[in-house]
Computed example of a mutant assay.
Amino acid sequence: MQVKLNMIVAAAAVLCAGAVQAEDITVRIGHVGPVSGSQAHYGKDNENGARMAVDDLNKENVMIGGKHAKFELVAEDDAADPKQGTAAATKLCDQKVNGVVGHLNSGTTIPASKIYNACGMPEITPSATNPALTKQGFSNVFRLLANDNALGSGLALYAADALKLKRIAIIDDRTAYGQGVASVFKKAAEARGIEIVSEQYTNDKATDFMSILTAIKSKNPDGIFYGGMDPQAGPMLRQIETLGMANVKFFGGDGICTEKLMELAGGAKTLGNVVCAQGGVSIAKMPGGTEWKKRYDAKYPGDFQVYSPYTYDATMVLVDAMKRAGSSDPKVYLPFLAKTNYKGVTTTVQFEADGELKNPAMTFYAYKDGKQIALN
């Protein structure tokens, strides 16, 4: 009887040891974007991409440092407002999440990055494109797509070389993103011999642009560049049509380059004059884009905008670094993040020393027959 009892005790000890070895750790990934306000469609799309990654990771047997990892998404709303963005960053630092995907806007990402840097939090933005972000010298900040230097210059070259435009007006929304991409466009356009006939300003809450568009019309431009987001670009296109500028080309960066723009333009024929640019290749040309998009649409029908494949990859890149480091501790895995070589949905992700994506691609888009179509 004593022998049998000893065997039972020994077996229980083995089971307990196995339970300890298989003990789960919880990895919490922060995500911040505007899920309220006029840019909520962007933020919801981004959050969906990160959430989809977390769901996929939880279906895998992910091991970090010999322990099974369980993943949670800690989602915060910054409403595209810098003050709310810094408040969300402080909250995530206080909660000691294991890494952050975000923010969406340059105007929220840049001030938030200072907070993440101070608390040693790795941050990957899937969409903030102002070059100033990575010029701060922070070792914890990374970007997963082309910046405004590429987008603004590329659009200026397209306007000059492909469309042979000569006179362009510029409008920007005074945000870090809008000003940044507009200034790059202006410099590159002037270098190609384009005359900038008018420079006008608005804000990222405005909907009435008739006065600035009337001033622009008097300059007889053959193109308008808008540095800003689609909640303003849509009404602007309607008002351009109202003013009889039906043949004026309309340019913008990734902020206007969305599926939502078709709805926001409200049937304006000027939608057909739009040429916009996104960092990265089209979904069809992404290494895993087509299959991923099918899964996304099945999970979040009607929500896709632009950046969700990048938030998905950003989440996966953070976890890949943790796996290689054998730790979810930001201090331990951050050096491994800098040495990323990850085959993602969007591209093979590698970073330059300053946190910029190596070899970023860019795609031009237009709108035709109710669809957004890639031009390259």
Rank of each mutant, 00 (worst) to 15 (best):
G234R: 01
G234N: 02
P235V: 08
Q239G: 09
L243V: 07
G244W: 01
N247E: 13
V248G: 07
V248Y: 01
K249V: 08
F250C: 07
F250A: 08
F251T: 03
F251W: 03
D254H: 01
G255Q: 02
C257S: 15
C257V: 03
T258H: 10
K260V: 04
M262H: 00
E263H: 04
E263Q: 15
L264M: 09
A265T: 04
G267F: 06
A268G: 03
A268L: 05
K269I: 06
K269S: 14
K269P: 05
V275P: 00
A277P: 00
A277D: 06
G279S: 12
G279D: 09
G279P: 11
V281I: 07
V281H: 00
A284M: 07
K285N: 14
G288A: 10
E291P: 02
A298V: 05
K299P: 02
K299N: 05
P301Y: 08
G302Y: 02
D303Y: 06
D303L: 10
F304T: 10
F304W: 11
V306T: 14
V306Y: 01
S308L: 13
S308D: 13
S308W: 07
S308A: 15
P309Q: 06
P309F: 06
T311K: 05
T311N: 14
T315N: 05
L318K: 06
V319H: 01
M322I: 04
K323T: 12
A325G: 15
A325D: 01
S328A: 15
D329F: 07
P330M: 12
K331G: 13
V332T: 14
V332L: 07
P335E: 10
L337S: 08
L337A: 09
T340D: 02
N341G: 04
Y342G: 12
K343S: 15
K343D: 15
T346F: 01
Q350K: 15
Q350A: 14
E352Y: 02
E352A: 15
A353K: 14
D354K: 09
E356N: 15
L357M: 13
K358L: 13
A361Y: 03
T363I: 09
A366H: 09
A366D: 10
Y367L: 12
D369K: 11
G370L: 08
